[in-house]
Simulated scan of single mutants.
Amino acid sequence: MKVAVYPGSFDPITYGHLDILKRGAKIFDKVIVAVLINSAKQPLFSVEERKQMITEAISQTEYGVPVEVDSFEGLLVDYLRDKDIHVILRGLRAISDFEYELQIASINRKLANDVETIFLMTNNMHSFISSGSVKEIAKYGGDVTDLVPSHVVTALREKADYV
């Protein structure tokens, strides 16, 4: 069984993330969306809120393969070892993403030489979307309905700082 882990902060999940997930599901027999618990970042949504938003988003689409939602803290390669998984799925929007992702993939490869990172280019219609830009637009009352699922729009509106 070919399994991939799609790691990220997903704060919040966007249509760009879901595009990568949908396309990754065509390649792998199973995909695990793994929310990174990063104590160095101050996410808008808790890990549980992000996992719930992802779960709701993936329930609205048929992927043809199992898609699970999980979370982890620490090194991604340790999470992969614990799950006996050897593939990381990552999305790229632009050249700037590639430079960053290449560094991370190289470090992961150094730490675990049996791990491969697969990059998928985000669909052009989603290439400008980032979780950060979604939060910034929502914070100032902008319309994000074309960038994230409707339940994420609602969750953004419910956050006091983002009304």
Rank of each mutant, 00 (worst) to 15 (best):
K30F: 13
K30M: 14
K30H: 13
I32W: 01
I32A: 01
I32M: 00
V33C: 02
V33F: 02
A34R: 03
V35K: 04
V35C: 04
V35P: 05
V35W: 02
V35A: 04
L36N: 06
L36M: 06
L36G: 08
L36D: 02
L36F: 05
I37A: 03
I37L: 04
I37Q: 06
I37T: 04
I37C: 04
N38S: 07
N38P: 07
S39V: 05
A40V: 14
A40H: 14
K41S: 04
K41L: 08
K41T: 10
Q42M: 04
Q42E: 04
Q42T: 05
Q42R: 07
Q42V: 03
P43M: 13
P43H: 09
P43N: 12
L44G: 08
L44D: 08
L44C: 03
F45A: 05
F45W: 10
F45G: 10
F45N: 08
S46K: 07
S46I: 09
V47L: 01
V47W: 00
E48M: 08
E48F: 11
E48S: 08
E48I: 04
E48P: 09
E49Y: 11
E49D: 10
E49F: 10
R50N: 00
R50V: 00
R50W: 01
K51R: 03
K51H: 03
K51N: 02
K51T: 06
K51D: 03
Q52E: 09
Q52P: 04
Q52K: 03
Q52G: 03
M53C: 03
M53H: 03
I54L: 06
I54H: 01
T55Y: 14
T55H: 13
E56T: 07
E56S: 06
A57F: 02
A57G: 02
A57H: 03
A57W: 02
I58N: 13
I58V: 13
I58E: 13
S59N: 07
S59A: 09
Q60G: 09
Q60E: 14
Q60R: 15
E62T: 12
E62S: 13
E62F: 12
Y63M: 01
G64R: 11
G64C: 05
V65F: 12
P66C: 09
P66L: 09
P66E: 12
P66Q: 08
V67W: 00
V67L: 00
E68I: 13
E68V: 14
E68T: 12
V69S: 08
V69A: 06
V69P: 04
V69I: 11
V69E: 07
V69W: 06
V69N: 06
D70G: 00
D70A: 03
D70S: 05
S71R: 01
S71F: 01
S71Y: 01
S71D: 02
F72R: 01
F72T: 00
F72E: 01
E73P: 15
G74M: 06
G74F: 05
G74C: 08
L75C: 11
L75V: 11
L75Q: 10
L76M: 14
L76I: 14
L76C: 11
L76P: 11
V77F: 15
V77M: 15
D78T: 11
D78K: 12
Y79I: 14
Y79T: 13
Y79Q: 14
L80V: 14
L80A: 13
R81L: 15
D82G: 12
D82C: 07
K83G: 09
K83P: 04
K83W: 08
K83A: 12
K83M: 08
D84K: 15
D84W: 15
D84M: 15
D84Q: 15
I85Q: 08
I85D: 05
I85G: 05
I85Y: 10
